[in-house]
Nucleic acid binder design. Structure first.
Lengths: 313, 313
DNA sequence: TTGTAGGCGTTATCAC
DNA sequence: GTGATAACGCCTACAA
């Protein structure tokens, strides 16, 4: 019966008395709308996909959680797909799923701008942690945060700064690197070590290079790298921050990586996920996004691993 | 046309020449079957859900990856749902999604046996990292691995062993704890510290209790806890393994948590995911599972953090 | 082996 | 404000 359908999908179009009778019956019978049938007529599946490069880096966990929550608040379901950081698999996944989902949030995509642009032209898509001209995007403004960090390091007298760079192919990693180099200025020197997997072990192993290159400060792509570096510095008898300062861009707060308190950028990754989802839902509904490129602020949070270098080495 | 439909869904029922003509046309037109329409008639969505407590613990990442791969090999799609370790949310998610997916893999569920059993009676479901009598389950046999570990610790002369237990409500955590206590025997003593969040920080903070209770060996729920403990022991001047041995049950290999090489259990989490998916697909197809309760072996892997205690403290 | 017809559960369109 | 009816795209008898 069509009235029942209306009572559920467009409650405003039916008399309140009828509506309540329908709802009562729905309760009593334990009725659930069939999403497949709804998708068939409406063309909308109520499904939204989020593509992430990996789940091994817990950085993405709160982003997913934020998006999932926003999706459910809008009575949609978020499905997570992992591309394993491969551009090929990313492309496969996008084509495989397009048509099954109403839209995509593509986090830190590895594909080229042109491919993404072409894809976004046919399917509602929001890019996260990367900017692609012509597509809606949401990023955490870690580059700005890193400029603040560099300012502090410079004020503390650091001039040789090592950057433990992130995974290969990361667009954001390049942006961070550029921000560091630029804000370090002509009197500073940025020593890039990497690309590195964002792991504790890689951070520990990078220490040798840091010492060899006589850096007095280290900025790591994420807290695991930073923690590994702090651990290994400790091991080889280098005191932090007296001899070397360590800071991190991505903050993996969920891992409880806080002892020692590493100087880091603090931001709201769940907010990223939620903002991306909101933008995507506007796209799906045919409304223009409120802001084409959203930036989530990243604030410098001082820890106990940075300070004025005691020696010039 | 029905021939086209057959050529795609039951290729064996159509003449090979016709079939290839259809496939050619499919290619040329870029045709994709509409999964919603297919779901409407067949009752199967091609969607399978995996419920995990959290994504912040990277332990689940390779499990998901393994299941996702197995799903795609069978031309199905895996959707991941996060319950945030809440039994209430777990129940919500299961009911919300049942009917939208063909089946569930519920990883480390928090709900009661009775609830799960009831749910499994109406929907194909496989349990992972927990055993529920009457349901198909797949677990990693860390308890057996821990018994091996205890054997080694005892042989090394350890008698007071601290267990840094895992997140509250974890069924597997209880099982591990029991295995440790039992295999430690009447001459040993198991000191349980926790429940603890599976984080670096919690591991570091647990060190005080370990020292207070005069344990000579520590077994941690996962490598992050173990690493935090090693770090803090180091900090307070306790040498590992000379004074205290440290080992871990869950191995977070993906985090590159390997420096120092912590003694740990090595297993194949992707295999867990794949095995669960295969069992689930049998269930969905109405075939009985090959084995009702699958156990993935966990092998003791010696690192540099365990050894004979130099002092009896 | 292939074509035809009916129905899956929902929504939109149209009369009432 | 409400009830009928025709799609939506696919699958599955059944008939040819």
């Amino acid at each position: 019966m069509s009235t029942a359908s209306r009572a559920l999908s467009r409650p405003d179009l039916v008399a309140s008395e009828t509506r309540s009778r329908v709802l009562e019956a729905v309760q009593r019978l334990g009725f659930h709308v069939n999403p497949a049938a709804r998708a068939l007529t409406s063309g909308k599946t109520g499904l939204v996909a989020m593509c992430v490069p990996t789940l091994s880096n817990p950085f993405f966990a709160p982003i997913i959680a934020g998006a999932q929550q926003a999706a459910e608040a809008a009575d949609r379901h978020l499905t997570v797909v992992v591309t394993e950081g491969s551009a090929r698999r990313e492309a496969e996944v996008l084509t495989r799923l397009s048509g099954q989902v109403d839209g995509f949030i593509i986090v830190a995509p590895r594909g080229g701008d042109a491919d993404l642009l072409e894809f976004g032209a046919t399917t509602p898509a929001v890019i996260a942690e990367r900017v692609v001209p012509g597509l809606t995007s949401v990023i955490i403004d870690t580059p700005a945060g890193l400029r603040d960090l560099t300012g502090m390091l410079k004020a503390d007298g650091h001039r040789r700064v090592a950057y433990l760079s992130g995974p290969e192919g990361s667009w954001m990693d390049r942006l961070r690197c550029d921000a560091l180099r630029e804000s370090l200025g002509p009197n500073g020197e940025l020593i890039v070590i990497g690309p590195l997997p964002p792991t504790f072990r890689a951070g520990a192993e990078a220490v040798q290079g840091i010492l060899d290159r006589r850096a007095t400060a280290v900025v790591a792509y994420n807290s695991l790298l930073a923690l590994g570096a702090v651990y290994q510095l400790h091991n080889v008898g280098v005191r932090v921050p007296e001899q070397i300062s360590v800071a991190s861009a991505d903050d993996l707060a969920a891992l409880g990586l806080g002892a020692p308190e590493i100087t880091t950028l603090r931001f709201d990754p769940a907010g990223l996920g939620a903002a991306a989802m909101e933008a995507l839902m506007r796209l799906i509904d045919g409304r223009p996004p409120a802001v084409p490129h959203t930036r989530i602020p990243a604030a410098l949070q001082l820890g106990s691993t940075t300070g004025r270098p005691a020696t010039d080495v």
